[in-house]
Amino acid sequence: MTPAALEACALSFPAATKVVQWGGSDVYKVGGKIFAIVGLGGRLMFMVTDLAYEVMTESGMAKPAPYLARAKWVSFDELEGLDPDEVADWLKTAHGLIAAKLTRAQKAALGL
Rank of each mutant, 00 (worst) to 15 (best):
Met1Tyr: 02
Met1Leu: 09
Met1Ile: 07
Thr2Leu: 03
Pro3Gln: 06
Ala5Trp: 10
Leu6Trp: 04
Glu7His: 09
Ala8Tyr: 01
Leu11Ile: 05
Phe13Cys: 07
Pro14Val: 15
Ala16Leu: 04
Lys18Arg: 13
Lys18His: 09
Gln21Phe: 10
Trp22Pro: 11
Gly23Asp: 13
Gly23Phe: 12
Gly24Asn: 13
Ser25Cys: 04
Asp26Lys: 11
Val27Ile: 13
Val27Asn: 10
Lys29Ser: 05
Gly32His: 00
Gly32Gln: 00
Gly32Asn: 01
Lys33Ile: 11
Ile34Cys: 01
Phe35Asp: 01
Phe35Arg: 01
Phe35Asn: 02
Ala36Cys: 11
Val38Asp: 10
Leu40Thr: 15
Gly42Pro: 04
Leu44Val: 01
Met45Gly: 07
Met45Gln: 15
Thr49Ile: 10
Tyr53Glu: 06
Val55Asp: 14
Val55Pro: 03
Met56His: 08
Met56Glu: 02
Met56Cys: 02
Glu58Gln: 10
Ala62Met: 11
Ala62Lys: 03
Lys63Asn: 04
Pro64Met: 08
Ala65Leu: 10
Tyr67Gly: 05
Tyr67Met: 14
Leu68Gln: 15
Ala69Phe: 15
Arg70Phe: 12
Arg70Gln: 15
Val74Glu: 08
Ser75Ile: 11
Phe76Trp: 05
Leu79Val: 04
Leu82Gln: 08
Pro84Cys: 11
Asp85Arg: 13
Asp85Phe: 10
Glu86Tyr: 14
Val87Asp: 09
Asp89Phe: 05
Leu91Ala: 08
Leu91Cys: 04
Lys92Phe: 06
Lys92Glu: 14
Thr93Lys: 12
Gly96Ser: 13
Gly96Met: 03
Gly96Trp: 12
Ile98Met: 08
Ile98Cys: 01
Ala100His: 08
Lys101Val: 03
Leu102Lys: 05
Leu102Glu: 13
Thr103Glu: 03
Gln106His: 01
Gln106Thr: 00
Gln106Asp: 00
Lys107Pro: 06
Leu112Gly: 00
